[in-house]
Simulated scan of single mutants.
Amino acid sequence: MTSLHGAASSLPASSAQAGSAAPAPVLHNSVLERVGIEIAQGIRPTGSVITLARLEEETGVSRTVLREMMRILESMGMIESRRRVGITVLPVSAWNVLDPRIIRWRLMGSERVAQLSRLTEMRLALEPTAARLAATRATPEVANELLDLARTLRTLGEKGEGNQQPYLEADIAFHALLLAASGNDMLTSLHGIVTEVLAGRTDLGLSPADPAPVSFDNHEGVARAILDREPEKAEQFARAVVMEVWKELGEI
């Protein structure tokens, strides 16, 4: 099993990457974010038409770049371009709602708590299974790395830094490694979704500075069960980790 040490810094849509990119891609991404957010939040409702001429006038971005941006949004299922009709915003049912960008854009809207709840329900279906598989497939090295990350979460959380970036990075790394440790490439591919959920909670101020101690116990429990080759315990502890989040969301 390949170690994912340092996964936190490589998984989210990186602002560092944006900062090192050439001006054109940065501008491209800026407009893509703007239009994507407007669609995701209903500012551009289903059935509304996007006019490239007007968008070009508003943003100062060339028609060529805008067309490329529209192709990206079309690949995400958010819009449809048809001759004589133009570019039309599609309903949510057509979107690739598991695209991390769409997840992030929806988490920035007024329905953020409902979106987090749906995503947490999905995590509840996936992560316990990943933990169970990891307990039969992960190497001792990976299991120990999970345990190290869980201990880092406890150390930072007990210092009241549960809503700070270092804690978020360790949390993302833990859950990304858990999915990878399952040995199932389909589960591993979902790391971007979990990343956006965890980052979204922090960005929205929904992550407590002082996480409940039981959260640390459960994270360590997952890692120890994987290390000890105990699939049922690993599954139970992973379920408890996600249930704690679900409980917090229900109290908002």
Rank of each mutant, 00 (worst) to 15 (best):
T2A: 13
T2D: 13
S3Q: 12
L4F: 09
L11R: 07
A13D: 05
A13M: 08
S14N: 13
S14D: 15
S15W: 06
S15T: 12
S15R: 14
A16T: 09
A18W: 12
A21W: 06
A22Y: 08
N29R: 13
S30I: 01
S30K: 02
V31D: 13
E33S: 14
R34P: 00
I39F: 03
G42T: 00
I43D: 04
P45D: 04
V49G: 00
V49Q: 12
T51F: 04
L52T: 14
L52W: 11
L52I: 15
A53T: 15
A53V: 15
L55E: 13
G60M: 05
V61F: 01
S62H: 06
R63S: 11
E68S: 15
M69L: 15
I72W: 06
I72F: 04
I72R: 14
L73R: 01
S75I: 04
G77C: 04
G77M: 06
M78C: 02
I79L: 10
R82P: 04
R83K: 15
R84A: 11
R84Y: 15
T88L: 13
L90D: 09
V92H: 15
S93I: 05
S93W: 10
W95L: 10
L98F: 11
R101A: 06
I102Q: 01
W105I: 08
L107R: 00
M108R: 07
G109C: 03
S110E: 12
S117Y: 01
L119H: 01
A125P: 00
E127I: 09
A130G: 01
A131R: 00
L133W: 00
L133R: 08
A135P: 02
T136M: 08
R137P: 00
R137C: 05
R137L: 06
R137Q: 08
V142C: 13
V142Y: 03
L146H: 02
L149S: 12
L149N: 08
L153Q: 05
E158H: 03
K159G: 02
E161Y: 11
G162T: 02
N163E: 14
N163L: 05
Q165T: 09
P166F: 06
Y167P: 05
E169Q: 08
D171E: 12
A176R: 02
A176G: 15
L179Y: 00
A181K: 09
S182V: 08
D185T: 14
G192L: 03
V194N: 00
T195W: 00
V197G: 02
V197W: 11
G200T: 04
G200L: 05
D203L: 14
P208I: 02
P208R: 01
A209M: 12
P211H: 03
A212W: 04
V214I: 09
V214L: 09
F216S: 12
D217P: 01
N218L: 14
N218P: 02
H219T: 01
E220G: 04
G221R: 08
R224S: 09
A225W: 01
I226M: 05
L227Y: 08
L227K: 15
L227R: 15
D228T: 10
R229I: 01
P231N: 06
P231W: 04
K233D: 14
A234W: 07
A234G: 09
V241D: 00
V242Q: 10
V242L: 09
M243W: 10
W246S: 15
W246F: 10
K247Q: 11
